[in-house]
Amino acid sequence: MTTMTRNLPRAGAGTRVARAEKPYVHPYAAGILLGIVLFLAFFITGNGLGASGGMNRLLVAAQDVLMPTHIDRVPYLLDMAGGDRNPLDSWVVFISIGTVLGGAVSGWQHGRTKLEINKGPQISNRTRLLMAFVGGGLMGYGARLARGCTSGQALSGGATLSVGSWVFMFAVFAGGYLVAYFVRRLWN
């Protein structure tokens, strides 16, 4: 019975059979849930959360296959994949795998999984994708520079009261607010 109603096209939703897009959870409620996940990560494993580290190791694993001799010459890469070291043998890789799975399941469950581009009203898809790539590049570079991203530094280090992570967090917001005015056309 439930499946039937779910598959019925809704008024105004067109004739495509799709899950109706549900509203997001209230920010405070989501924050409490995220805090509990973060706490459990520390409580059970002693490690926090992370994302860019997992992406880093996936990348290094690919490099290790494509150009192993290069890996063995760069100390930074050597540390992760030199000799018989397996760059994927790290908890943070599995956090990232879980993150993708969790996002996919929730998106599907709440009818928010659809092929689309989210952007401000004034720019073309091409500009948005170009900026996404540039922004991603800056994020990736900055995250390695700072030894962690929003998850691995700001959330994890913030909750464990690391001085460096709190300074880092303010730097991220400062960087964003400093530049926001100049790129307002992208989003408004």
Binding site: A51, V100, G142, A146, S151, Q153, V172, A174, G175
Partner: peptide
């Protein structure tokens, strides 16, 4: 940490995500 944070802040507003949220 500070310089990396500033670079990431710029990346955030230009690209619209941070690494974790982009995976989602």
């Amino acid at each position: 940490g500070i310089v990396g944070g500033l670079v990431m802040g710029v990346g955030f507003i230009v690209g619209g995500f941070c690494p974790g949220t982009s995976l989602v």
